[in-house]
Design a protein around this nucleic acid. Structure first.
Lengths: 196, 196
DNA sequence: ACCTGAACACCGTTCAAGT
DNA sequence: ACCTGAACACCGTTCAAGT
């Protein structure tokens, strides 16, 4: 129902129990949300745990979990704000982090570079998903609206914005994500070669 | 006071007026927050508007506004959640976007590549700031705590995480930001050369 | 032992009544 | 005309009272 509309009263009602009963299972709303986050993290493609996965190089493998995480976050737009300023430490989060890190270390990254690159990519994925939040079914309409707005600005004051009104709004959320991820992986490749 | 603690009643009280009076100036809490966001965006280093700025190459200039935006966001940690899923379109946001875009186009980027790179960098900066939110004065203590937690895990189940416990928590928020930004700018450089 | 209605101390927003 | 106390319809959380 969305984070704004959710309430302990509503949850109690849907479960056919009193609101106060919920506090026998969770310390409060905050603790409940921690469990919600870990459950969502658990939905990340299990492929990352498989042996077959080892055939791919670091770039393919990293791109794969990044896309999988991005997909999962987009499947749960209502829960996205829960990922702000919360380092997920539940059992599912631990397992996924382990695999993503091992991926890099197994393929020759130093522990330090692996840790830095893992963190950068993970923060990029969640960050973009957060800022694209709500760009669901009517995303095309929203972009159209923004394009008109940029295009209608004063061309003397905002020449570059007016000229690039189309380009600024032509790229959809998933294309934008893919492009930025490739930029970051290109950067990782540079850093890796520099380290040698 | 933080977004959680803020209320229209508190604001009315601090201004020495009735709560209902606020609704004569703003349609409601949401509209008020839009103004808060644009005011914060207005704090981005004005250097970006100056002619002297033109001496720098695209990478220096882009890194400069990215760092400035990051600093501004960190100066207002309580307002950060307001940047989730809101494309800032106030007067200050328009002015800053114009300069950041013109920067790239003036230095030979096509409109499309400029738009894509601007968007990627802007989303990266805000995304990282969002996820580092609250890592203020006691950040060192939090990292120490997380390091112990990672280090204490079962080494059979989480070998890479245990081994990299130090590396995962050794990098502070601003270093992490700088590293990821460099990755992304390396990627932009790659893309730019490919386009030629 | 387990559950919960009702209460407590809050919200955002509205509007009739005051100045 | 402008302001606002009080009310309305909600919150999260607690606890005495019920089963």
């Amino acid at each position: 129902v969305g984070i704004e509309e959710f309430s302990m009263r509503l949850l109690g009602e849907r479960l056919g129990s009193g609101t106060a009963t919920l506090y026998r299972h969770f310390a409060g709303k905050d603790e409940l949300m921690v469990y919600v986050v870990d459950r969502i993290v658990g939905e990340i493609d299990a492929e990352i745990d498989r042996d077959a996965y080892r055939g791919n190089d670091w770039r393919q493998a990293t791109a794969r979990w990044a896309h999988s995480l991005f997909d999962v976050l987009n499947r749960h737009p209502n829960a996205l704000p829960l990922f702000v300023s919360r380092v997920p430490v539940g059992p599912n989060a631990l397992a996924k982090r382990e695999r993503s890190l091992a991926l890099l270390v197994d393929r020759g990254f130093t522990r330090e570079l692996a840790a830095r690159c893992y963190t950068a990519v993970a923060h990029y994925v969640v960050g973009v998903a957060l800022q694209q939040q709500g760009s669901g079914s009517d995303a095309e309409g929203d972009r159209e609206h923004l394009r008109c707005y940029f295009g209608s600005l004063d061309a003397e004051t905002y020449p570059a914005t007016v000229a690039a009104a189309t380009e600024l709004t032509a790229v959809g959320p998933s294309d934008e994500f893919r492009f930025g991820l490739e930029l970051m992986l290109d950067g990782v490749e540079c850093e890796r070669q520099r380290g040698r």
